[in-house]
Write a protein that binds this DNA or RNA. Structure first.
Lengths: 200, 200
DNA sequence: GCGATGACATAAAACAGATATTGTCATTTC
DNA sequence: GAAATGACAATATCTGTTTTATGTCATCGC
């Protein structure tokens, strides 16, 4: 996978991420990346087959910032129904915070990510797997008896809450409290749909 | 509302819609609209305060093509749960068909519509009202006992199915059969969440 | 030999002058 | 006198040109 020196590869990646942060996606050139590292731009192509691949790698790293904290929740001890609720709320909060903190940077990274469908697909698959794990646990311990096929139901849950995490929709998000209440309502519907009783 | 002759106003609107269809949103100029009608462009401004307003009016008309058939279903005789399912499926089919028929035209009209937030808001409110009517009926006849506040629940249902009708998401829609199955699954979850029993 | 270079052809983006469009209004027409 | 015109300033868009970036490769140094 990483036949060329992984060290310089990382340095290139970090430099690219820094430039993306500073100047936005349109100004990210491999010439500048090389300049910043004091190397020839031709050499960047020894480590990444194309500018596209470099951008995809940067996006991948950025997306892992989103999934990492969620993995902790998914693997947690809480009862599956409340774990799912917590997980969905956390995903929404993370996305919302990223948008509000720096909309331009969010848009920049999102644009880069959306140019690499396979990176997006992997990210989504990752999220679906985390939900599926929660649903499977709920099916096993009887707290979510309505779960039929964890993977399919997980995808359904993720899709049904797209409004709160899909980049194109989070952008024009409106009031935070309203959005939170709306997510909570949808979560409740989904949990009851999955057979949960005594939903908070 | 229509102090100026409603006849010429309509002619302008139709001409604008025709040009939008033919040449796309970027090529829609009020100069061309006027030329097509054999009038001066200045006169268009007697009937529409700005190009933006003209575009909004065109978008409004276009969106009513979506809501009209749905209104029939919402006002139908079917039992509320299956009526809701039918309504959501119909909305998805309408949107999907519009995208597939002519993606460029869809994108064009969508761009025009998205430039007029108040037109969008009215459209969404219209859809929410239709769902709310179904939910209220289900609450009344006991087939959807889980309905708490019809308006809020209606909005939740619409948001949860955004994947299947929101222009930005319908666009990259993938396989039709897969999407249909996914919508059906989400619909089932929502119906059960609203208290429906014996969901098909 | 491996990592790196820099010159090169090709493709994309930035620029600036020319052209077209938006929106206003005093004037015209019927 | 309401509906329409056409000339107008300000703004946006197009077009052809120059500049810059991407990606390749023969060559270099260690």
């Amino acid at each position: 996978m990483d036949l060329p020196s992984p060290d310089t590869r990382t340095r290139i990646l970090d430099a690219a991420a820094a430039l993306l942060r500073r100047h936005g996606p349109d100004k990210l050139t491999v010439l500048d990346v090389a300049k910043r590292l004091g190397m020839s731009h031709g050499n960047v192509y020894r480590h990444f087959p194309s500018k596209q691949a470099l951008r995809a790698a940067v996006a991948e790293e950025w997306l892992s910032d989103v999934t990492a904290p969620l993995a902790l929740i998914a693997a947690g001890e809480a009862a599956p129904p409340s774990r799912l609720r917590e997980w969905l709320a956390a995903l929404a909060v993370i996305k919302r915070r990223k948008v509000l903190e720096d909309p331009e940077m969010f848009a920049g990274f999102h644009r880069v990510a959306s140019e690499s469908p396979e990176v997006i697909a992997a990210h989504v698959a990752h999220l679906v797997d985390q939900i599926a794990a929660i649903l499977a646990a709920g099916k096993a311990d009887g707290t979510l008896p309505g779960v039929a096929a964890p993977q399919d139901d997980a995808r359904a849950v993720l899709v049904a809450t797209a409004r709160f995490h899909h980049p194109d929709l989070v952008r024009d998000g409106g009031n935070a409290a309203t959005a939170e209440a709306e997510l909570s309502r949808i979560t409740t519907l989904l949990l009851r749909g999955l057979g949960a009783t005594a939903v908070a």
